[in-house]
């Protein structure tokens, strides 16, 4: 017989129930200043009424979500295009490692938000500035992990390349890339997680559109804590999905020897 409920599912449900209970409790303690899960659910349904509406005066939550995702995709995509080859280069060459590593170490700890005003000064446009910010913060984890992969290619694989006289191109496509791929995907997964966290903050700064702006404008300024909670849940769910997507890719491209 096929099991419908595994132990894992049970644990998951217990976790959700605990979270719901805690939420309910806090809601009661704050005399519903923090809305209850039920009240939030009603606001959620209301927010979800016309999710894809895209009028100048009213943009649905789905439209806002898509615009946030779009900026993440552009910034993260551009960042990855730079970080993957650079990381592989850094991992393959001691000289490149020596040159690039100090720069990465210096810039990596900088809060992504610190890049926002710089982006604004460069591009004179708050949307481009937040893409720029996402771009920068997407670089580091991917670069570091790609470099780690490229610098840890097992001697066995290198021996195959040497023994059979692989060309540079064959070495790149049949050994370096496939070996580094799971590491690269780990980097991308960390990067997209950071990018998704940062976009919300960025949109609070830039204003205008996106989920971050929704939190700030309709939630905080509009005095609706329920909307803030709704946004938090949506942001969390989307972040979770992005993470699972990259986790899936990571498993897909990891090989037992």
């Amino acid at each position: 017989m096929k099991k419908i409920f595994s132990l894992q599912t049970l644990y998951f449900l217990i976790g959700i129930a605990l979270l719901g209970g805690l939420w309910e409790l806090i809601s009661t303690l704050t005399k519903h200043e923090i809305p209850s899960p039920r009240a939030t659910w009603l606001v959620f349904r209301e927010v979800m009424q016309h999710p894809m509406q895209n009028d100048p005066d009213y943009k649905g939550i789905g439209t806002k979500l898509l615009s946030s995702l779009e900026r993440v995709a552009i910034g993260f995509g551009l960042g990855s295009i730079v970080a993957v080859p650079l990381g592989l280069l850094v991992g393959s060459s001691k000289a490149m490692m020596g040159i690039i590593n100090p720069i990465v170490q210096l810039l990596r700890p900088v809060s992504p938000l610190a890049w926002f005003p710089l982006g604004l000064a460069i591009f004179q446009d708050s949307h481009k500035a937040s893409v720029f910010m996402i771009f920068i913060c997407s670089l580091w984890p991917t670069l570091i992990n790609a470099a780690f992969g490229a610098s840890h290619i097992p001697q066995d694989h290198k021996n195959v390349s040497k023994a059979f006289g692989f060309s540079k191109w064959k070495y790149l496509t049949k050994i370096l890339l496939p070996f580094s791929l799971p590491h690269i995907i780990t980097g991308l997964r960390l990067s997209v997680g950071i990018a998704w966290m940062v976009i919300v903050a960025g949109e609070m700064l830039s204003g205008g559109i996106g989920l971050g702006y929704f939190v700030w404008d309709e939630g905080f300024n509009g005095g609706s804590i329920a909307k803030i909670l709704v946004a938090i849940i949506i942001i969390g769910l989307v972040g979770l999905l992005l993470d699972k997507l990259f986790l899936f890719l990571q498993k897909r491209f990891t090989y037992a020897s």
């Binding site: 694989h157 021996n159 090989y255």
Partner: peptide
């Protein structure tokens, strides 16, 4: 080679 040395992704 001593340990086969096949490329695991091929």
């Amino acid at each position: 080679f001593q340990n086969y040395s096949l490329l695991p992704w091929l």
